[in-house]
Design a protein around this nucleic acid. Sequence first.
DNA 1: AACATTATGTAATAATATAACATTAACAAG
DNA 2: CTTGTTAATGTTATATTATTACATAATGTT
Lengths: 135, 135
Amino acid sequence: MRTGNINRMQNLSKNQQIIFDLIDKSPEPLKAYAILFNVQKKGIKAPLQVYRALDKLVEIGKIHKIESRNAFIACHNSSCQVSKATAFSICEICEKVTEISSVGLSKYLANFKDKDGMKYNKYNLEFFGLCKKCR
Amino acid sequence: MRTGNINRMQNLSKNQQIIFDLIDKSPEPLKAYAILFNVQKKGIKAPLQVYRALDKLVEIGKIHKIESRNAFIACHNSSCQVSKATAFSICEICEKVTEISSVGLSKYLANFKDKDGMKYNKYNLEFFGLCKKCR
DNA sequence: AACATTATGTAATAATATAACATTAACAAG
DNA sequence: CTTGTTAATGTTATATTATTACATAATGTT
C-alpha cells in the first residue's frame, strides 16, 4: 500500500482503466475499433493497445466478449471476478445485450454432463430473440 | 421431380454442395479462407462465393458456425433442419469440437425464462474444457 | 414469354485481429 | 538499492475475417 498508483491497486493499468471506463459507461457493447477511435485522444493510438487491454480485461472478468457480435460489455454480475461462465440475451432487432445472472441456469450448466460424462466448468451461452421494446 | 438436377432437389446449389461436402468430410471445423483455398481448384475463386454459400448453409441448418473460433462444422444432429438451438463442446488444447445433442439440455434452454419472463427459441452454447485425449 | 427469385462472378475494400520487435514500469529477492 | 523477473506499453507492419457494389446467369412460376 506504499504506491500512490490507485490504478495498480485495482489491478488495472492505465490503458486497461481507460478502456474499461469507456466500456463500463456504454449502454451497449462496443467493438474494438469503436473503442480505438474513442480513446485516441487519450493517447491509445494502435489496435494492438486496445486488444491487449481487452484481452486482460476479459481474462480478469471485468468485461465479456459477445462472440456473435465481436463486441465487449462490462461484467454486470458483481459476483464473477473471473469469467468462466457467461450467458447473455441479445435482441435481434435493436442489438441490446443483457447479461443473464440466473443461479438456476448457471447451476444447470455447471453440472451438465455430455454423453461421455464430461463436465465443463467454462461456457458461453448467447440467447437470441426480441427484447421487450422490440416485440 | 422433373428436373435432372439432383443438387437442387437437395436444395443445394453447385457452390453450396462443394462447400458443404468439404465441411462434412472434415474432422474439424473449417475456417472460411481454409475453405476458399481448398475449393479454388473447383472454380470457387473469391471469398464472397464462400461466404455466400456458408450463409445459406447456416440458414438451412446444414452447418453451424462456431462463433468463438470463426469456423464451421457440419450439423451432426440429424433432427435439426433449421438450426436455432445449438450446443458444442470445445477442447481448449486440441480444438476438437463436438456438437452436443441432449434432449435435457435443449428442453431446459428452450424453456428458460429470464428475469422478465422472456423466453428465447434461439441460442448458441459453447462449452470449453479438455477432451478425453487431452486430459 | 414474362416475371421474380436465387445463385454466381469479379473487383475492391472494410472490419477484425495478430506478429515481431523495442522499450519502459512495477515489483520481489538478495 | 540494484539485479532479475514479469507485466505493460509503443510502434510498424501485416494477417485474417467479412462485406459492398455492381454485373450476369440460372431457376422457378405464372
